[in-house]
Simulated assay, not measured.
Amino acid sequence: MEEGGEHPVARKVQAQFPAAFIGAALFRGDLSIHLKKEGLFEVGRLLRDDPALDFDYPVHVSSVDHMGERERFEVVYEFFSIRKKHQVRLKTRVSEEDCTVDSLTPLWEGLNFMEREVYDMMGIKFNNHPDLRRILLPDEYDEGYPLRKNFPIEGRGWRDTFEFLES
């Protein structure tokens, strides 16, 4: 993996938010910027509002479970600039005890359902999300988070209680 700190986008983020910037990496030309969660929203605003960056398209939000590490969960945002034709990933880590991060939906409305999916499947809460509720699982589901590594592969037995209609 190449060092990404010299990439112009990474340099701009580091210069404007040195306290939030952890590091940057390039892999096959794709830039990832690692941030402290406290700086995520302001860095997102910079990516959207700075005319030189112009990240106008939120591509994806995902999460990673690094079970056994102090900051167990990682939230990964991917953005693209249609006019500038460049991309960036923002990555931030959260602990299981403080499993929250600021929502970027107020900056990009298109992130609404993607953040809800991460919340529903991994249990990461997004502060200031306009409608943080389940999107894939039933509202009454309370048996854990299916994308966490410690969720049983066979589930927790609730699938056995579904009644299927015969066609």
Rank of each mutant, 00 (worst) to 15 (best):
T100K: 14
L104W: 11
G110K: 03
L136Y: 15
F55S: 00
D131K: 10
I153Y: 13
G29K: 09
D142G: 07
G123P: 08
S103E: 06
L26C: 04
E69Q: 12
E96A: 15
Q87M: 06
D102A: 15
F79T: 00
F21H: 06
K84H: 08
I124R: 04
Q14L: 03
W158M: 07
L35D: 02
F21D: 06
F113T: 08
S95L: 04
H66L: 15
S62R: 13
E3A: 09
L111G: 08
Y119V: 00
D65L: 06
T105G: 04
R83E: 10
A20D: 03
E69M: 12
R148Y: 08
L53D: 01
K125G: 10
I153G: 05
L104F: 13
L35G: 07
L107W: 06
N112H: 14
G110M: 07
K12H: 01
P138I: 02
I153T: 12
P8L: 06
L53W: 05
G155Q: 00
T100C: 09
F79S: 04
N127G: 02
Y141K: 02
F80K: 04
E3T: 08
L136P: 04
L90P: 07
R159H: 11
E74D: 03
K91G: 03
L137T: 00
D65T: 06
D65Y: 13
L47E: 07
T92R: 10
V118W: 13
L31A: 09
D50E: 14
V88G: 03
L137A: 02
S167Q: 09
P58S: 01
E140Y: 14
V13F: 02
D131F: 10
P18G: 10
G44K: 02
S62T: 15
I82V: 15
F17L: 05
Y57P: 01
H66A: 11
P152W: 06
H129K: 05
E109S: 14
P106S: 03
L31H: 01
V59E: 14
E97K: 13
K91C: 13
E143D: 01
M1T: 09
Y57D: 07
L111Y: 12
L90Y: 11
F21Q: 09
V61N: 10
F162H: 05
